Computed example of a mutant assay.
Amino acid sequence: MARRKKIYEGKAKTLYEGPEPGTIVQYFKDDATAFNAEKKAVIEGKGVLNNLLSEYFMTGLNNIGVPTHFMKRLNMREQLVRSCEIVPLEVIVRNYAAGTMAKRLGMDEGTQLPRPIVEYCLKDDALGDPLVTEEHIAAFGWASQQDMDDILSLALRVNDFLAGVMYGVGIRLVDFKIEIGRVFEGDFQRLIVADEISPDSCRLWDIETGQKLDKDVFRRDLGNLTDAYTEVATRLGVMPKGATPMIRPTLIN
């Protein structure tokens, strides 16, 4: 088997050249990071769970007409995605005050916001992914005004979908972040949801107990992260009850 060409390695995923032009193989690692990678660990099975959950959410979005880069899952840790040019922004949608927003504004965690609030951060690890405004985005040319209108629309549609799905299994969607990609079709471009949607990129709380079922479990040392992610996957029917994610797979390059 020919060795695949690695395109990029991030904190949670590795990207490889896909089998066809315009495609990428996205591999989900077990690495967990927090506080801009100041805290690190390897959580066995995490990559498998995130792969399965991201497939579930991206497929659901595709089915309701929200375009994503997801094409198909290849195996327990890899999925085939469409190549795209990533807009250098993290798009954050908040339904409840939590994390940095609660700290920044002096709000109690869990305070319901009057409406979903969309925030933007510049994707730059060296700077700590700073919060930026639409004025910054326009001034520095990171995205056009039309792009921002489309990004806002995509983000709110993703929020509606995720919030409804989670509510149906007794989970509160507190907030989440997504990345947006540009794809070019002839002389035209369109924006699509890219990267991943998983408990790594969402805050998920049990509606009844407030139990955290997301990466805050790792950030705040609240228990076993794999157990939390497995609970989400089980409730959504992504994994059957009693199943455990595949541990220590062999990656063939």
Rank of each mutant, 00 (worst) to 15 (best):
V93D: 05
D108L: 09
T100V: 03
L89M: 10
V118C: 10
L131P: 04
E119P: 05
G106T: 06
L113H: 12
A98H: 10
S83P: 01
K72L: 12
G110P: 05
D108A: 13
P116R: 07
M101S: 01
T100W: 07
I86D: 13
R77N: 14
G128E: 14
F70I: 03
L74A: 04
M101Q: 08
G128A: 10
M107W: 15
T68G: 09
P88M: 09
K72N: 10
E119C: 03
R104S: 06
A98R: 04
H69Q: 11
H69Y: 03
E109A: 05
Y120T: 04
P67I: 01
A126F: 05
L80Y: 05
S83E: 15
C84Y: 13
D108P: 00
D129A: 06
I86F: 02
Y96P: 05
D124N: 15
A98P: 05
Q79C: 02
Q79T: 03
L80D: 07
E85W: 07
L131G: 05
M76Y: 13
R104H: 06
L113A: 04
L89Q: 12
R115C: 06
I117E: 10
R94E: 02
G128N: 13
V93P: 04
K72R: 15
P114G: 13
V118L: 14
V87T: 07
A98E: 08
P88L: 07
C84F: 07
A126W: 01
K103L: 03
I86N: 09
